[in-house]
Design a protein around this nucleic acid. Structure first.
Lengths: 164, 164
DNA sequence: CTTAAGTATATGAGAGTTCAACTAAAATGG
DNA sequence: CCATTTTAGTTGAACTCTCATATACTTAAG
């Protein structure tokens, strides 16, 4: 099949998308690195652990929830363990598995980092958008992560820009 | 000021945003790495050079157009030069400056990579969105990159979800 | 003209990410 | 049971990115 190139509008949208996501990522990563001494990926890991019962998760489950590859998680948890923020225990039920546990120090580090981070998320994203845009943004992101429509052309007509 | 935490809806949107942008980035980066042997950042550099007159740009201008830091660009162009895809020349007008020039080999590499990349952009983003969503997405991204509204509360009412 | 300040880019160390290869422990199936 | 396959997780090398610092040239000031 011949390449379906982007038309002018799509080009513009695509480049805007790249610029915007880059901007958000860089802004947040810099803020966390500067104020909390950790990259955003580490913050995500701590968050997911803090939400889990016993502040404990299997490595693979943690990887999936934090949106990380297993290898990346493995390296990251190794660093977090060096800092004393996470501890690893053998999984009693499955000898291959490991449980990652958020320590009290880790929880404290997360609690210290959270306000500044959330404030930056707000400034970077929510403060610059209208409520309607936020609603559509969520639909868009959901569609990207789990594409429902198959072939081009006749996608199901979802509501766009509606306000309940 | 006390932290403005995210409410439940905002949390959901924020996490969807992270998951979606991660998904897009990883998908494209993997595709380019696998099929063209370059990371997405390098592809961007080649694209911007290919669009410039004489396929030539000052390093700083190239950095700005490709959305790269100067340091990152410097390292990247060094690698691209090793591959023979880019060449650096002293800037005649300004002895400090350097001109990055896309070579014929570099252009060929870009031309070879483009169809697969564009197809992946389409599959990952445009194919899963309705036209209305695409339009709003562009507005959203524009707002993120150059925030117009200042203090919270009274943002100017932009159109949301409209279709001309 | 000389010196100070500023601009353009490079460079090197440190850290995170990826990919492929590796270990170890379950599950599966004769 | 024993062999095979699958699953869980780690590891190391290669690569990219960031940050701080260095270099070279230009502009501004006296």
């Amino acid at each position: 099949m011949t390449t379906r190139w982007l038309d002018e509008d799509e080009q513009r949208t695509w480049r805007a998308f790249l610029a915007a996501t880059r901007h958000v990522q860089e802004t947040l990563d810099r803020q966390l690195q500067r104020d909390a001494g950790m990259p955003h990926a580490y913050y995500e890991i701590l968050v997911r652990l803090s939400e889990a019962p016993e502040r404990t998760l299997r490595m693979s489950e943690l990887a999936s929830r934090a949106g990380s590859s297993q290898s990346r998680l493995s390296h990251a948890v190794a660093r977090l363990e060096e800092r004393g923020w996470v501890r690893r225990e053998r999984c009693p039920a499955d000898g291959r598995g490991l449980l990652a546990v958020l320590t009290d120090d880790g929880y404290a580090a997360l609690a210290a980092a959270a306000p500044g981070h959330v404030e930056e998320v707000r400034r970077t994203l929510f403060d610059v958008l209208e409520p309607g845009q936020v609603a559509v943004l969520e639909e868009i992101c959901a569609a990207i992560v789990s594409p429902s429509g198959g072939t081009h052309g006749g996608g199901s007509a979802k509501s766009v820009g509606r306000r309940p």
